[in-house]
Design a protein around this nucleic acid. Sequence first.
DNA 1: CCTACCGATCGGTAGG
DNA 2: CCTACCGATCGGTAGG
Lengths: 197, 197
Amino acid sequence: MARIKTTKDESRKDVILTAAAESFRERGYKATSMRDLAEKVGIEAASLYNHIDSKSELLIDICFGITTLMNDFMTSVEESDKTSLEKVETILRFQIKQMVDNFNNNFVANREWLHLENPELGEFRALRHGYRKRLNQIITKGIEDGEIKESINVPATVWLLLHAVYGIESWHRSKVQVDPSVLEDNMITILISGLKK
Amino acid sequence: MARIKTTKDESRKDVILTAAAESFRERGYKATSMRDLAEKVGIEAASLYNHIDSKSELLIDICFGITTLMNDFMTSVEESDKTSLEKVETILRFQIKQMVDNFNNNFVANREWLHLENPELGEFRALRHGYRKRLNQIITKGIEDGEIKESINVPATVWLLLHAVYGIESWHRSKVQVDPSVLEDNMITILISGLKK
DNA sequence: CCTACCGATCGGTAGG
DNA sequence: CCTACCGATCGGTAGG
């Protein structure tokens, strides 16, 4: 019985989280009121607090859900026996797919995280920094192995790659529709051939 | 006398605009209160309204200032006798320089414009759309002339290029310092060699 | 899950 | 440029 109750609560919270991700993406975290969110879910604002503790909890769940997913995937790629350039390609393809399939959550994690507060803000920054550092190491290895242009600046390249991918956020909103797989192949073509020695 | 008064008012407004751009970048438009802004300028919140009409006016001035600059530069490049690939490179270098030299204003124009309201919101979107369309035409010409890979999807490529550049926003905030000219050359190396046939 | 409500803060105005 | 203040809205709570 307690089990069923828990399940019910969790699925209700998921509905709230999904609505929150869409609202935060469309209007931004600060401009989304709990009354807006409640209306979207179909209940009164006060009723939201039976499922969550605070507005900030929603942002925390969204941001950490995405970064955890990204870091876990990074680990699986590091442990694979691909070449460095293949690793970069695999990571970029995963990020692009995530951006297309889970647009709202990724947008919020990329653009609204600055509204987190400590200690979560610090933890989030550390997670993202660790992620970039690991991508940095893969690219550095690729240069040592003669796979990647030795003339590039590695930290600047990491930024370029990640933000080229984050750009799909805005792309997704536009009216010009492109098939996601075309989009993915196009990004890989340009970025990987740009990196290749 | 009227002249002097106007000049004084304008320079005071410039101080407010500069402070606003920094605050909107750091905390976001919605999270920045007029009391925060007033404190930064060194006056009371009510006194701000002797120089501006509303909070939204500040966002409008910042966003349209940047897009006007970008569109004017685009015009000068279109009228030049460079090859298409050279035009793309020139535009990217200008955008990168702008992002480094005028970081706060560019960040706000790229990330906080969604808090504009109609009619300015519609006008701003139209300006940005026109800019992308013109870049699209340059790249299309480059493919026709055999300078640029014919395998790329042009709209998706425009998004990739612009967002790779917008990424400098976040880069600028990071602790890893890289010389701006190294950053610029690095981005050009990867993106232009990725485009080249 | 709702009604009723709280204290805090918001953008902005009146009047000097 | 300031003091004093307004109505609206915010996130969140009490109590049922």
